[in-house]
Write a protein that binds this DNA or RNA. Structure first.
Lengths: 203, 203
DNA sequence: GTCATTATTAACTATTTGGTTTAACTTTTT
DNA sequence: AAAAAGTTAAACCAAATAGTTAATAATGAC
């Protein structure tokens, strides 16, 4: 029972919208293209979702929830900082490899409309950093880790996980790598990013 | 003689196009908005640049050159890896702070049209990593640095420098920071990112 | 089985948008 | 100063696009 597909028209539309919006963004997406992708009449998009904006919001919220829910749990479990970082980066990078357009989509759209994050915060919620911060402070105090700012570390983790996918076209060109070796490089990051971070902060 | 402005119509258009394209992207930008921003008639855009596509390309190439030329030089000077990393991150982050929309613009547009990087490579050129790779290998061999893959390290550097600007709306919300404290955090990264990296790779 | 509700489509509409045209104005050349 | 070349703006155009309508088909209630 993996991936049992919901073939209602409403869901066909959502799936088609997901693939078009994630690839083209709100501004680049066309309602007709979404209809074609779903194999249904364009009027159906408005019948089920009223407007392009609302269809977009449905797609965005889905994507955001999918991306953050699991990671938020990892961030708040009871493992040590080191184990947490290994676990988080592995899961985050693995997730992105299965949805490689998602970071570009999310960050592009949040930059286009930064206020939208308030809506998201209210309706979906955001990962909470408090436990991570407290844990980090404890492990710094007890001498396991070097003095480290939790916000900076969190930004570094997300940056190292997500950026290679955002920057792929440029990075491939600068490093002179073809698609396959580059993908191998990304795969290695599931482990290597955590090593890189732990090496830096461990006493 | 800082910033002496070229007030020819052609340049007014380019400046207006820069600010509109960088904020809205190719798909979100409107020729009329660029004309309004420049304070001239829309027909002038086509008189000087023929089409939206060509105007966009002029803006993109300008931005790309500005972003990479200086950094390419740093990458190929004769300092040690450690000094090079400190120098590179400081300059990169400082540059982005003066052009905060540029990374979003460049990466968004390269993802929209990944083949465009070939055009850029031919017409403008890309930073060359060979010297950096060789230097890194040398310093690993002579025991100054831990075994480190040059491509991975390069990706990490760019990620840590550029990503916080791409992810700003989300990162501000997750860390619960207002604009000013967040900007201070970014400013501290001019130094702290290099420390983070050096700590990780130094023996 | 028929009536009401829901789902679907083809055709249509109003607006936006990149691009063009034409005529006027300005600067340069001779 | 007259002709030529270059510059500017207003009005215009055709294509694209989000959204609507009205008629038809399928589904479910009774």
């Amino acid at each position: 029972m993996t991936k049992e597909k919901n073939t209602t028209t409403e869901n066909l539309i959502l799936e088609a919208a997901k693939s078009v919006f994630q690839l083209k963004g709100m501004d680049g997406a066309r309602m007709q293209e979404i209809a074609d992708e779903a194999g249904i009449n364009k009027a159906m998009l408005h019948y089920y979702y009223r407007s392009k904006q609302l269809l977009f919001e449905a797609v965005f919220k889905n994507a955001f929830k999918l991306m953050t829910t699991h990671l938020g749990e990892i961030l708040n479990d009871d493992l040590s900082i080191e184990e947490k970082i290994r676990n988080f980066t592995f899961n985050h990078i693995s997730f992105i490899m299965e949805h490689p357009y998602m970071p570009g989509f999310i960050f592009q759209e949040l930059n286009r409309n930064p206020e939208f994050i308030l809506n998201i915060k209210k309706e979906i919620g955001l990962p909470n950093l408090e436990k991570f911060k407290k844990q980090l402070d404890d492990e710094v105090k007890n001498g396991h880790l070097k003095p480290t700012n939790a916000e900076q570390l969190f930004i570094n983790i997300i940056a190292l996980n997500a950026f290679p996918f955002l920057g792929a076209p440029l990075l491939k060109a600068v490093t002179n790598m073809e698609d396959l070796p580059f993908e191998k490089l990304l795969d290695e990051r599931k482990i290597e990013v955590a090593n890189f971070i732990i090496n830096s902060i461990k006493v």
